[in-house]
Structures are given as structure tokens and as C-alpha cells.
Amino acid sequence: MNDKELLPWLEKATSGDESAFQLVYQATHQDVYRTVAFLVYSKQDIEDIVNEAYIRMWRSFHTYDPQRPFRYWLHGIVVRQVQDWKRKAWRRIRLFERNRQMTREQFEWTDKAVLQSEMQLELFRLVRQLSYKLRVVVILRYFHDYALEEIADMLQIPVGTVKSRHHLALKELRKRFELTGGDAYVY
């Protein structure tokens, strides 16, 4: 189902039609979940954020501009929800505890993912090790295919900042990629 077809359903869902809600959820939940899971690693946190992103979706549907692509609006909500969560999380939990927890989960999760796909997803693993600020740019650029200007708009930061983060992220990835020897033409 494409964005245009989804819109009337979303509108119905917003006014209280439960079957429309089901349909919208089915059409979007994998995308929403994956976007969040790229940015946040704890299973519990991912689920909290997905839930909150949907709540935000109903509540701010009236601000949606039909001239713009639906997914762009949706991803904007998801990303802002993640940022909100991070802001709160830093206040709530002590830094080092959080880091330890994150690293452990990250590796458990990645191992599983790699096993499941039976692929050496070296770059994917490296992306997950990037700092959040760099990672979010990489995900929006290479997973969702947004232009750097769009990413700036979504993250509400200057384009110049996005460009420098993008550049930094790629530099970091190249460096680590060579170090781990995961380059495709080694084999």
C-alpha cells in the first residue's frame, strides 16, 4: 500500500475507526520498528518509543501537510520521539550503566542478526557502533534515502552540521572497515 492510499485510513483512524487503525499499523509498523531499532538498542526502549510514536501520530495528524510525502512526516515523528527519549534517558539513568547495558545488548543483538541472515554484515555492525549523532544521519541517508537537506529539516539542525556528521560518519566507517579487514575484495 502506498502513501496516498494510506492517508484516508489514517484520517479515519484519527477520528476513532479501529479497523482503520489496524490497517495503518499493519502498513507501517515494520518500518517504524526498524527505524527505531537502528537508533536505540534496548528491546524495552524500542517498544516504548514505537508506542509513543504511534500516539504522536494520532495526536498530531492535524499538523500533517498532505503536500509532503507521508513517510517523511512519519519518519520525522519517529526521529523526534527517539530524540525525546534520549534526552529523558540521560537524565534518568547514570551514564556508565547505560553504556554497559547498551554495549552488551548491541552485541547480543548483532550476533543474532548476523546468524539469522547468514551474512557477514560487517558495515551494519560498524554502523551500530557509531555514536548516535553520526548514526542517525547514516540511517536516514542510506536506509531511508533522504537528501542531506531533508535530514537537516528532520533533525532540526543546520545542513552544514548534517554534512559534517555525514562526512565524519563515512570517514569513521571506512577507517574501521579497513581495520577489521571486512572489505569485500579481501576474499
Binding site: F21, Q22, Y25, H29, Q30, V32, Y33, R34, A37, F38, E47, V50, N51, Y54, A113, Q116, S117, M119, L121, E122, L123, F124, V127, I139, Y142, F143
Partner: peptide, 20 residues
């Protein structure tokens, strides 16, 4: 790799109940 990585991530079905 991001696409493949994404394919290996699945939204848990019980999350539906919560969002609902």
C-alpha cells in the same frame, strides 16, 4: 547491508496489543 540488517529485525507481534 542496512537493508539486510533491517530485514533481520522484526517487530514483535505482541507490540500490537500495546499500541492498540
Amino acid at each position: 547491508e542496512l537493508r539486510k540488517g533491517a530485514d533481520s529485525m522484526h517487530c514483535p507481534p505482541d507490540l500490537y496489543g500495546r499500541v492498540q
